[in-house]
Each structure stands twice: as C-alpha cells, then as structure tokens.
Design a protein around this nucleic acid. Sequence first.
RNA 1: GCCAGGGUGGCAGAGUCUGGCCGAACGCGUCCGCCUGCAGAGCGGAUCACCGCCGGUUCAAAUCCGGCCCCUGGCUCCA
Length: 496
Amino acid sequence: MSLRVTNSLSGERESFEPADPDSVLLYYCGLTTSDPAHLGHARGWVHVDVMHRWLEWLGYDVRHVENFTDINEKIVARVGEAGDSEAAVAESYIGDIVRDMRSLNLRRAEVYPRVSEHVPEIIELTEQLLEQGYAYESNGSVYFDVTAFEGYGELSNQDIGEMEPQGTTEERAEKRNPGDFALWKAGGVEPGEIAEHRHEGAAPAGEAVETAETFDSPWGEGRPGWHIECSAMSTTHLEDTIDIHVGGQDLVFPHHENEIAQSEAATGDTFARYWLHVSLLEAADDEKMSSSLGNFETVTEAIERYGANVVRTFLLSTAYHSRATYSEETVDEAESRWDRLERGHERAVAAVDSVDARTKVTDETLRAAVTETRESFEAAMNDDFNTREALAALLELVTAVNTHVDATGEYDYRGLRAAVETLEEFGGGVLGLSFAGSEPTGEVGIADELVELVLDVREQERAAGNYDRADTLRAELGALGVEVQDTGDGTEYRFE
RNA sequence: GCCAGGGUGGCAGAGUCUGGCCGAACGCGUCCGCCUGCAGAGCGGAUCACCGCCGGUUCAAAUCCGGCCCCUGGCUCCA
C-alpha cells in the first residue's frame, strides 16, 4: 500500500511519489518570530512532524526545512517588550519557539533558516526576476508583476482582475497592477506600518523603527518582501523543485500563491509537487486562534497545563486537513484518550515482564488484534496521514491488551511483546508520544520504596477494617500524584 | 461579491475520492452488570444518528448527479 495525499493544487487525493524515489524534500512555512507560539502553530508543527516521521517509517530519507521569519514589521512592533531591537526581539522569540518545539517532542528539521541570513540569496532571486521581466523597480522598491506570470492564481483560484488595490496610497501608486506584491521594499519601517501591531507599553513607534534592520541592495537600502524569503530559502537549502510544501491554510493566498509565481518564474520548473495545507484550529466560540486576535493559548501554557502527550494527542485526534475545535471539552477528551493509551501500554509492559508471561500461552485474539492494528494503522497513515484513525487503531489494541491481561493468570509472552512493540513503534515512533518507562533509567527510585511502605500500612488498616484510615492514605497518595488501585491481584499504583 | 472547506449521535469526530463489509469507527458522556469494603482502573452490555433539505441515478447511496438552505475560513498581519 502506498501513501496518498490531498494536494491543494488539484484539490484531489493523489498517490504520492517523490521526484527521487529514496528521498523527500519537505518545506514548511515557519513562524514569524514576533509572538510566542500558540496552539494553532503547534497543530501545524505536530502534523508536519508526524508526516516527517511517517515518511521516514516508509523508508524515505526526509529533508525537512522550516524557516524563521525574523525580518518583519510585527517584530519591530514588539521592540521594547522582548528586546530592544528588531534582531533582539526575533532572537528572543526564536529561543522560546525552539524550546517549545523540543517540549512538543518534534523531530528536528534539517535546518531552520532565517531571513536575515539569506538576504544575498533574496537579492539574487529578485535580480533574476527583474532580468527575466517578471518584476519591475519603482522608487527603490521591486514588485512582482502578476500579469507577467501565466499561472498566477492557480493554487488559490484567484482572479487577478478581481483583486482590490491594497496597501498605502504610495504603494498603490508604485504598483502596475493591484495584485502585484513587493519583492523588495525601499527604506526601513515607518511608524505607521507598525501601529496596528503594537501592544500597550511597547517602545514608542518612532524609536522602535530606528532598530529595524535594513540591507544594501542594487536598488538602495531596503528590506526583503515577505513572500520571497520562502522561495529563496527553499531553493537554497533544498532544490528548485521540492516534493512537499506544507503550510497553514491561511497562507494559501497570497503567500503560497506568490511563492509559486516567484519560484516558477525564476526557474521555469515546478516549485512544489504537492501542497498540503493544515486547517486552522478554532476556538469553541468558532473563532480561529491567531496571533492577531490574541485569543490563543500559548504552547508553553498548554504544555504546562496538560503535558506534551496530551497536547499531541489532542492535535492528532483530528486529521491535519480537517478543522479542529479547541475547548475544555475537546482537550479533556484527548486527555482520556492518552490516558487510556498510556495505561494500556503500562499494563502490557508489566504483564510481558512478569513471571506470569509464558512461552507456551497463546491468545489468538490478542495476536489477531496486533496484526489488525498494524494493518489499520498503516492504512490510516497512508490515507493522507489520517492520524485520528491511526490513533483509533492503537486504542483498539489497548482493549485487546486489557482483555487479555484481565482474563488470564498466565500471559501470552509473544503476543504481549508484539503489542508493546506496536504501541511503541507507532504511538511512540510515529505519533511521537512518549510512554513512561519506554526509556529505562536503570534506577530504582526511592519513591517506589516509600510508596510501597505506605501501601503496606494501608493494607494493614484494610485488613483490620479501618477503611477510613486506608482511604485517607489513598487520598493523600493521590494528592502526591500516586494513583492507587485495588485489583483482584492486590494493590497496584502508578505515578501520574 | 469572488475563492476554498464544511453540515454525520448528548459532545467530539472518522467514513464521502474508490457505492455494498456503515445494522456508521475510536474516544468522551449517561445507564446497567462483573470485579470491589468503597473508589478507581479494566471488561461486558445498553443508551444515542432516518448521515442539512428536496429530487435523481442504481439491485444497492452518508458515499455518485442536480437544485436549494445554512455555517466557517481566505480575499494581501496570520500556522
């Protein structure tokens, strides 16, 4: 079975075949480093991460590049908050963002290029477009002429004729067509350009814009346009033609449309063979979460509240191309799903490593469930990275494990081992969830010994019929994060 | 207005491309049973969907076709 993906270019699910059968060139439009990352960003990240992991599982060598936009008016607007210059603000947020990425257990990209490091490549590409007649200079700025590129609007189905003129009066005067966009902007940043992005308490706009970076160019001092950076950086670090370009749904127009125009005009080749768009996360009140609305929960806060596994489970509980709703309820549900998965894994590990795991015990139902799970997981992932279905497959295996462990006093060693490996390979390796104990520390904690000591005392109280005291001990352990359960085989506990 | 994506149980959300295994997955919720001193976890069962509306094609439609209604997002800050 092979991978199929929904390609925004055609709007259809197509079978995926990279240009080079052994490797996949993947580019993801990363963040503008002007705010902390929020859950919406995490949604994109986690799905791209799982795509990356699944492509590797399929045997491809994945070359994943993801940029940081560190030259942008919105960053200038934050001067005085997170740093005292555009560069300092960007660096401060890059630091936070990378920390969030690690917390989310994201696999590292091959490289995280920054715009500020790629101005020479941007200028080179702009010059090339000028020479080829796709761009024109106007008062020290350079614009892309959308009428010169035949395929303009194909990704988003926009009609050039329908576009309303945008931008400042000055900018409009400089453009030949309303849809033309800047490749290079003359000068620095004007106070008026950052006005709408400023927070209370930021540095005065006049001072902030003084710190904005400007660069020499053949057209004078200026700053790169937003769209050109991704074209320049993906070509620099990957190839003229890449296999998969992923980005948020909100970037389809104009950003991705413009990337295609710039890159394809310059190289004459297809820019990206498959465009995958991650749908936006919406808050329960039906508003999408975004930096501009300020109604986000940051990644840092979410991880603090729920933990990375719950956040990942939540984000993966909806396929990347479907809308997702963020609310207390949907996160709670994710928490239950993860809990069930984790407990299932724990039980399977405990059973397979127990003295009751036997060579000659065979539970056909369990073994069939493993096979079935492996098949459905693979089918789900190959079906346009359907992570929700993939998760469902793992949860079905958990039921089989629980049934097996509940039903028999002697365990099917081989069956349980296959179950554990499947959970770790798919849930851990592919979905990026971290099962406790899957990485042994080699330490027997004193915590275990203390808990067992308390449980011994509690057992004596129970035997004596002092249930109030026993329950108090259980409650107090619970408050410390130790969950106590009495089962038919005695008392068990786990750290939450 | 133009473009894109949706409308499936109490919630959330797969399935629609490739019509039949959908008597609609997984999970949450509610109820009952087993287990249990109690609780929890687990297991089993039940509850809960005429799949937005109307019409058509077909032996067969959530799935294909036509029309309509409604929702969300994008239309140059956005993942």
